Simulated scan of single mutants.
Amino acid sequence: MDGFQIVVLALVQGLTEFLPMSSSAHLILTPKILGYSDQGLAFDVAVHLGSLVAVITYFRCEVFVMIRDFLKSLGSRGVQTKNSRMAWKIILATVPIVILGKLMYSMIQSDYRTISVIAISTIAFGVLLLWADIKGVRNRDEYSVTWKDALFIGLFQALAIFPGTSRSGVTMTAGMVIGLTREAASRFSFLLSIPTILMSGALVTFELVLDPLPVAWADLLVGALFSFAAAYICIHVFLRLIERISMLPFVVYRLLLGGVLIWFAMQQV
């Protein structure tokens, strides 16, 4: 991969990872538009890890307090606070995607990384996002999430193993369905991304280390750095604007993107 391709793909991933649109769709469509070959799963994971560092950095205060209170809750007294409960609920919400991802990991890497699958997922879950945004009551914050709510959001997140679904989009959809505000659904989604991206990144990184074929680690590092910068800015701007602009612009974009992907798929037939 040349430098321009690395930077463009990293910026695309960083800007789309935490928006309710599929970063997977963009990482497949962008090389096709620019005439590049697929960058491969290793690079996809690298730029996702850059986004992971961005979300941890942005929510560093919340993450620190949740980890602190979580560890305290494990002590003999087992004192629970709203932050320790939030940590436990994020763990619970992560379980479904871990189970489904483990069962379908090999299939995801091959059978489902197709333009047709991504196009259908992009459109279908875009429509679902619009429905949740219109019908949702949106009067709760993220700390009001119950155990049942956390599991519900986690089950929705498990659907994100299918490329084109958008992990952020589907978890925000679930959050608004249970009555969270757009910002609260987004914040819970961003915090929930931390263990999810961390585990998937660790799994593929372990495979890369054991793989005898050479890995362009420098390219992966550059991609991760640019993804980090783009993701951090994206999170900041998105949280400031989402209550005012609604999800409609992202839904319209998803429908247009899905249409473009269908066109690309038809060209390959």
Rank of each mutant, 00 (worst) to 15 (best):
V170Y: 06
V222C: 06
S73T: 14
A158K: 13
T165E: 05
I67S: 13
L129C: 14
P96C: 08
F152L: 09
E17M: 11
G75D: 10
V45E: 00
T196G: 00
G14I: 06
G50M: 02
I120D: 08
L220F: 03
Y143C: 06
L15T: 02
L210H: 02
R60W: 15
V137N: 07
Q39V: 08
S121N: 15
T94H: 02
V47L: 02
I67R: 13
L130N: 12
A158D: 10
F43C: 00
Q157D: 07
E207P: 00
A218K: 12
T81S: 13
G101N: 12
S186D: 07
L208C: 01
G175W: 12
V269M: 10
V204M: 01
F250I: 06
K148C: 01
T94A: 03
I97K: 11
G164Y: 03
I97G: 05
L220A: 01
V63G: 11
A132K: 15
Q5E: 14
G14L: 07
L128M: 14
F70P: 04
V145K: 09
L74Q: 11
S116Y: 03
K72L: 14
G179W: 06
W131K: 12
F18W: 02
Y253S: 12
L27Q: 04
M199P: 01
K102P: 02
R182V: 06
A54K: 09
G35F: 09
L9E: 15
V7I: 11
F18Y: 02
T122P: 07
T196D: 00
I6N: 01
L27P: 05
T205I: 04
I118P: 08
F152R: 04
P212H: 00
K82N: 12
Y143P: 02
G14M: 11
L221C: 03
L74F: 05
G75I: 03
G101P: 09
L255M: 13
H48K: 08
L225S: 06
F18C: 01
P31N: 10
E243K: 14
L29N: 03
F188M: 08
S73F: 09
G169I: 05
F188V: 11
Q109F: 06
A150E: 08
A10C: 05
R244H: 15
A216Y: 02
I153T: 05
S144T: 15
A202C: 11
V63T: 13
